[in-house]
């Protein structure tokens, strides 16, 4: 009985705060998406009209495609590079280790500022190319930002996420693994064999866990596509933001419906990736 009280008392503050703040936020936006927004003069609860509007809007498939085209490559590339860096992560952090963590320690808005500075057609990379005589005008620079493909957004997300995955991987490379790796070398295992049979089994749970979290983030990311993708194809999050920011407050429920559709997508994708990870590598791991 005393133990039970300890459990309840210990968990109560966290769960209560979560329910009050997080829960009420989700519940409030759900109600609004269903037509209950008296503070902006909308009261037609319950209606699925706003969801219908979202799903029949010709802009939605475009936004969905843009979202996937951004989030999937970013997660994949970020995970691969993160694993590569993580395996090379120094056992003792020197300056390199400290510096490599920098992207983790700044917010996405700073990453956006850096991307603008470097990747814009008039940015540092473009100037460097011009200085070496490879570029005649900013127009000739490939459109990394605001382009047909969201390369700039992907690059920014990847830049932020490499050290994240890398730290996860490094934290799992315990001394025992390194020993095992050395043993494998002694027995003549190839580089690929060592990775496949020694390294991978020990790190895949972390890689999948990291990818699930980054994928969920990337699907719902707002700042980066909003600020770096100035073409005509908005992601779902950017559309939700624009609907909310519209001078016409009657579009609020539409924004909420967008947000909920996006949340459903993020959760489904995360669950699918988790399941996929378990299915593809069932025998691995310990």
């Amino acid at each position: 009985m005393k133990r039970r009280a300890r459990v309840v008392l210990g968990l109560a503050p966290a769960l209560a705060t979560l329910a009050l703040v997080f829960g009420s936020a989700l519940f409030g936006s759900l109600l609004q998406s269903l037509g209950h927004a008296p503070h902006v003069g909308i009261e037609e609860f319950p209606t699925l009209r706003h969801y219908r509007d979202v799903f029949t809007d010709p802009a939605t498939p475009v936004a969905l495609a843009r979202t996937l085209l951004t989030a999937l490559p970013a997660t994949l590339i970020g995970s691969i590079l993160g694993v590569a860096v993580g395996l090379a992560w120094p056992a003792r952090r020197g300056l390199a280790g400290a510096l490599a963590q920098l992207p983790l320690l700044v917010p996405y808005v700073v990453a956006v500022a850096l991307a603008t500075l470097w990747l814009a057609p008039s940015g540092v990379v473009s100037r460097t190319l011009a200085a070496s005589g490879l570029l005649e005008s900013p127009q000739a620079f490939p459109r990394i930002l605001d382009g047909a493909a969201p390369w700039g957004v992907i690059a920014t997300l990847v830049w932020k996420q490499i050290p994240f995955t890398a730290l996860l991987v490094a934290s799992l490379r315990s001394g025992a693994d390194r020993l095992l790796d050395d043993v494998a070398v002694v027995f003549g295992a190839s580089r690929f064999q060592r990775f496949r049979y020694v390294t991978w089994p020990s790190i895949w749970p972390a890689v999948v866990a990291g990818a699930v979290i980054t994928l969920a983030y990337n699907l719902g990311a707002l700042e980066v596509p909003l600020l770096l993708d100035g073409g005509t194809r908005d992601t779902l999050a950017v559309r939700a933001w624009r609907a909310y920011a519209d001078a016409d407050v009657a579009r609020r429920p539409e924004a909420m419906a967008f947000a909920w559709s996006m949340t459903a997508l993020a959760l489904l994708a995360a669950a699918a990736l988790l399941a996929l990870g378990r299915r593809v590598f069932p025998g691995d791991g310990r």
């Binding site: 997080f22 409030g28 979290i213 969920a216 939700a240 909420m256 949340t263 993020a266 995360a270």
Partner: peptide, 20 residues
């Protein structure tokens, strides 16, 4: 439950919180 805020997009949380 305690992990959930990590998986729900920040924008969705923000839009709800703004009203609340």
């Amino acid at each position: 439950l305690l992990l959930a805020p990590l998986l729900v997009p920040e924008l969705a949380i923000a839009l709800g919180l703004a009203t609340v």
